[in-house]
Design a protein around this nucleic acid. Structure first.
Lengths: 256, 256
DNA sequence: CGTAATCTTGACCAACGTCAATGTTCGTGG
DNA sequence: CCACGAACATTGACGTTGGTCAAGATTACG
């Protein structure tokens, strides 16, 4: 696999490449989110609006934060920990749609449409900030700059989703696994949550399998192959990537 | 496969189920789009804004309308014909991300971020309306109701993308094919472009293969199996679905 | 009517899934 | 500190799905 999957960067305008996109919804919770404190950039003077009611919740590992079909309780910001967004297809089958990392938001679509179309499960212990859905919607309907900022983040998410679809459709198991891991590494690295050689990785083999549409047994085999090529390794709750560029190249992941 | 994939409906609020979401961008081109004329519902009095410059273009089958990496030329509305949004992974490999039908829009993300991350190819002869990107962006930045409407459509698209990811990851070839066809039928039917038993289907086996991550040979085999079960048939440029509910059930597609 | 493109079919093969046995890790209580 | 059990991970053996190759059949179109 030589060709590269589409660019995953968050560059927001050709001229502003390199500046990460600020999520205006996550910014509402800037005071409570460690990942935010590290990038106190401009966001139109809208850091921390006291009029949006907030509620902090800590969810233990394995528990669902929102469930498919349930009525929206508001918009969530992940302050700490990892979660996954998933769909269930049967009692023993699920597809993980995305991994949610600190600084990500979820359940906006559910808030706009009324009910959630997917579940979100805590992988580690997760601390979230719940924002008042009604107020978010009214802000979106009246504040164009806010709505535009959210739309920008949405479009960037859509690119990531497109790239994930491409890799699910066309890569081999080993490439999928490499792609998945380097994508997570890259996202964490941009948030200052990775060092040059690795980052946390609390997902189980089963979770990885559910994200890539493979069996957990095959994840073991594919990982062994990647390990043998010194592309990536998982030890305990952490992943190590000896040469990020090499892994990205192997998986067709465009870094910048 | 008994369980259903997530609901694809465009119901915009629990209370407003059944009313299709209006795409505010497509509405700017209401006067030129057949599919729009059939649903002259309220969209805040914003039907047809003469101040957004428009240009009509007809693209012959097989030609790219936008190309990955190229600078945005504006936002497009499909007035007539079919196109596909895709990523190329090599000279002989591509992944189709979505099928674009009359009434759909594309290249908004490219307009917001500067360059396009994917290509769009005409399947049939396609007639599009090109809207001025700068003016769309300035409208998004100043008109909150407009931006909110676009965000709503985006969220609905994201649901469809989530469901597609789920099916790509977890369904068998036959289920994927059934899902793909009934999804297209459903989308056309909502736009009044299908009768009770079928609809146009100008895609080649190769296109279907590229959309589902399968080989074109296997598409033939899977189609034969579906045909044998009287679930769906393709004859020439049209598809026929004897029993839509039965096919939807087979593929785990949630109709309403 | 002839040529090119597309579609179908069969034969064969590689990738991945499933099952089941064995290792490993980690938390818990003695 | 050690013993135990539960959850998770790895490995091997084997079956199935879907890919590849190549040869006809069909369709579209000049």
């Amino acid at each position: 696999m030589e060709a590269h999957l589409p660019d995953m960067s968050h560059g927001q305008n050709g001229r502003a490449a390199g500046r990460p996109l600020i999520n205006p919804i996550a910014a509402l919770c800037a005071d409570c989110r460690p990942a935010n404190r590290q990038s106190p950039r401009t966001n139109g003077g809208r850091i921390s609006r006291p009029d949006i009611k907030q509620q902090h919740i800590v969810i233990p590992p394995g528990m669902d934060i929102v469930t498919e079909g349930e009525r929206s309780r508001g918009v969530y910001v992940v302050c700490d920990g990892w979660a996954v967004r998933y769909n269930r297809l049967g009692p023993a089958t699920r597809q993980i749609l995305d991994v949610l990392l600190p600084g990500d938001t979820f359940a906006l679509a559910a808030t706009i449409s009324g009910t959630s179309q997917h579940s979100v499960q805590a992988i580690t212990s997760v601390s979230v900030c719940l924002l008042n859905g009604r107020q978010i919607v009214s802000l979106l309907k009246t504040d164009a700059a806010f709505a535009f900022g959210v739309l920008q983040v949405r479009e960037a998410d859509e690119r990531r989703a497109d790239a994930r679809l491409t890799m699910l459709g066309r890569l081999s198991a080993g490439e999928k696994l490499g792609y998945f891991m380097v994508e997570i590494y890259d996202r964490l690295q941009r948030r200052g949550m990775a060092n040059g050689k690795g980052c946390p990785f609390p997902l189980r083999r089963n979770d990885v399998a559910d994200a890539l549409g493979l069996s957990k047994v095959h994840i073991s085999r594919a990982l062994r192959a990647l390990r043998a090529q010194a592309l990536v390794d998982i030890r305990g709750q952490d992943m190590f990537i000896p040469d990020v560029a090499k892994l990205a190249d192997h998986a067709g992941y465009a870094m910048d």
